[in-house]
Amino acid sequence: MSYYDIDSIIAENQKIPCTCLVSIPGLGHEGREVSQGSKVELPFWLAEVFAVNSFVDIHMPPPFSSVVRNALKANPNTVALRDTTTHFYHFAEQLLHVVSDTSLAEVVLDTLRQRSMEIADAAVNPQGAIQQNNSFIEGLDDFERLLFRLAYLSHRDIARWQKQN
């Protein structure tokens, strides 16, 4: 994770539901105080330092809720990951730095493994894939979109090389 990496920064902007353990002046709308016990959504970069200092409790954000996890366990290829967050894998990685949740890590790894096969197949024939399986392609998160693009480009580069010879 590099300081200058744009995707890491976007992932750090993802919202996390938190409960305030103390009242926090300036955190609310137009700089109002948010009182102890209130629920707020904070970007990860703030939630993380707050949690480390015990100013908030963090809750599992919606992309990693049990509903999504169960759907992913049942069939990862039918879940529109992008509807949960544009940076599913980045976000999971950052979250795992601060929460202990081995089952989340397992779900994420299995999801990636299984969806990558579908992505590899789709990238070989993107036109056909978009026609037949558009909801899957549309539902890719940003990292999966990169994978799709990479698989498509390396396939295309080789095809072009073979043709020109």
């Binding site: 300036g26 955190l27 970007p43 703030l46 707050f50 100013f55």
Partner: peptide, 17 residues
């Protein structure tokens, strides 16, 4: 002063971001 400490931390983290 935990509330003020949290506030300061928020301002600090905001600026680093």
């Amino acid at each position: 002063h935990p509330s003020e400490a949290a506030s300061l931390l928020m301002l600090h983290a905001t600026n680093l971001h």
